[in-house]
Amino acid sequence: MSEKKTIPAPLANEGLPPEERGLFCDAAPREYEPARGAWERFLNWARSESLWLLGFGTGCGAIELRPLMTSRFDMYRYGIQPRPTPRQSSVFVIGGYASVKTLKRIVRSYEQMMGPKFVLALGSCTINGGMYWDSYNTIKRIDQYIPVDVYIAGCMPRPEALLAGFQELKRIIKSGGGEGQNEYARNFDWYKANQKKVIKDWNMPDYNW
């Protein structure tokens, strides 16, 4: 990851009118040290058994979240439930391709989530562009812009595949690997530079931790 730190992004609330700048924070996020030993393992267990999804259907993958939430597949069994506000949710499901306009909202929602936070990216289009590899408006890999914990391949991934992905996410969290928040903070400049390379109209506040 060391070679990623190249271009420092300007840390200013560009695009905001002056009177609103004070409302948002210019400081970059910081890393948080995990707790030690058995206590952290217990907390990780709790985090993995209570996954709250952010209710943001960013793409067509969101259509398979409906069956997943309802009685056929019933994700509540596994402690997974949707949550309407980013402040309270811990898992962000990227539902497929992300257009530039949506990517901006994805980044914003991701930054608003409280850590530790996890990202589950569905569909081939989040992995390498998939069907939209030559589209002028969709990004080709989401992990350039936010850290991703689990990819689920397919177009679209079936609910069973999603459940398998959630189990894999749980395994990662339990093993202490779900440190996307710290990774984002560590390589913050790199992520910001990537985001600003794509999102030209950066008319939104930079940070709001």
Binding site: T58, Y97, S99, K101, T102, Y132, S135, Y136, N137
Partner: peptide, 28 residues
């Protein structure tokens, strides 16, 4: 525009039969 993938442009770049898996993704 949050879901704009530029289908109509992409279809101009593809063969008629290659467009066929593309069209169904317009309305999920």
């Amino acid at each position: 525009g949050y879901l704009h993938r530029g289908f109509e442009k992409l279809m101009e770049r593809r063969l008629y039969m290659q467009n066929f898996p593309l069209v169904c993704r317009i309305a999920v």
